[in-house]
Amino acid sequence: MSATKIGKQREQRTGRKNSTEPPWNVLLHNDWDNSMPRVVLILKKVLPGMTIGRATRIMYEAHSSGRAVVKRCHKELAELYKERLQGEGLTISLEPAE
């Protein structure tokens, strides 16, 4: 079986692309327009698999340091999360992950 065929089968099974694209960080910035509980609920609502505990830690990091990494993923997905989170009223930016 060729490497290309194996790669395509893996993509079909996992739904993930095999890519060398560098990851991007979705950043949450502290703001005074959203309450802490509201930020936690939005993160849980928008991001698949986000738990209340993890959302709380992300919210608190943004609150105390000014920003926090919400998600690290490929650029297209990062842009989608940014759009959805901004649509809920959060202050979000993207940056290439190191």
Results as ranks from 00 to 15, higher is better:
residue 36 M to A: 10
residue 28 L to G: 06
residue 11 E to L: 08
residue 90 L to P: 02
residue 50 M to N: 04
residue 83 E to G: 07
residue 78 A to I: 00
residue 54 R to K: 09
residue 85 L to Y: 08
residue 27 L to T: 02
residue 20 T to S: 14
residue 24 W to N: 04
residue 33 D to M: 12
residue 49 G to A: 04
residue 74 H to E: 14
residue 67 R to S: 10
residue 65 S to Q: 09
residue 79 E to A: 00
residue 13 R to K: 15
residue 9 Q to K: 14
residue 71 K to C: 06
residue 48 P to N: 13
residue 3 A to D: 14
residue 69 V to D: 05
residue 42 I to G: 01
residue 93 S to H: 11
residue 61 E to P: 01
residue 9 Q to Y: 11
residue 37 P to K: 12
residue 5 K to Y: 14
residue 51 T to S: 15
residue 50 M to R: 02
residue 5 K to M: 14
residue 67 R to G: 00
residue 14 T to K: 06
residue 93 S to F: 11
residue 92 I to T: 05
residue 84 R to N: 08
residue 21 E to W: 01
residue 34 N to E: 08
residue 66 G to H: 09
residue 26 V to W: 06
residue 40 V to C: 03
residue 26 V to A: 01
residue 43 L to Y: 07
residue 24 W to S: 06
residue 70 V to D: 05
residue 10 R to W: 15
residue 59 M to Q: 10
residue 44 K to P: 04
residue 60 Y to F: 12
residue 69 V to H: 03
residue 38 R to M: 08
residue 73 C to D: 08
residue 60 Y to C: 02
residue 15 G to W: 06
residue 89 G to W: 08
residue 50 M to A: 04
residue 54 R to V: 04
residue 98 E to C: 00
residue 63 H to P: 04
residue 14 T to R: 10
residue 43 L to P: 05
residue 49 G to M: 02
residue 68 A to F: 04
residue 77 L to W: 12
residue 13 R to D: 13
residue 12 Q to Y: 11
residue 65 S to L: 13
residue 30 N to Y: 09
residue 63 H to W: 10
residue 2 S to A: 12
residue 74 H to W: 07
residue 10 R to D: 05
residue 79 E to R: 07
residue 86 Q to I: 14
residue 14 T to Y: 01
residue 68 A to K: 05
residue 6 I to Y: 11
residue 90 L to F: 02
residue 89 G to P: 00
residue 62 A to L: 08
residue 1 M to Q: 12
residue 16 R to V: 06
residue 17 K to I: 12
residue 86 Q to Y: 04
residue 75 K to W: 03
residue 71 K to H: 13
residue 59 M to P: 01
residue 52 I to M: 10
residue 83 E to R: 13
residue 96 P to M: 09
residue 70 V to P: 03
residue 86 Q to V: 05
residue 85 L to I: 07
residue 57 R to D: 07
residue 58 I to H: 06
residue 46 V to P: 00
residue 67 R to F: 08
residue 94 L to I: 00
residue 80 L to K: 10
residue 24 W to V: 07
residue 21 E to Q: 10
residue 8 K to M: 14
residue 79 E to D: 13
residue 74 H to Q: 12
residue 31 D to C: 02
residue 22 P to L: 09
residue 66 G to F: 11
residue 69 V to K: 03
residue 37 P to C: 04
residue 73 C to Q: 03
residue 84 R to C: 00
residue 58 I to L: 05
residue 67 R to P: 01
residue 94 L to N: 06
residue 29 H to L: 03
residue 15 G to S: 10
residue 6 I to N: 09
residue 15 G to N: 07
residue 74 H to V: 11
residue 48 P to R: 10
residue 48 P to H: 09
residue 78 A to R: 05
residue 54 R to D: 02
residue 76 E to R: 08
residue 54 R to I: 02
residue 31 D to I: 00
residue 8 K to S: 12
residue 60 Y to H: 12
residue 64 S to Y: 14
residue 42 I to W: 00
residue 69 V to R: 02
residue 97 A to Q: 02
residue 71 K to A: 12
residue 89 G to Y: 05
residue 16 R to S: 09
residue 33 D to V: 11
residue 26 V to C: 03
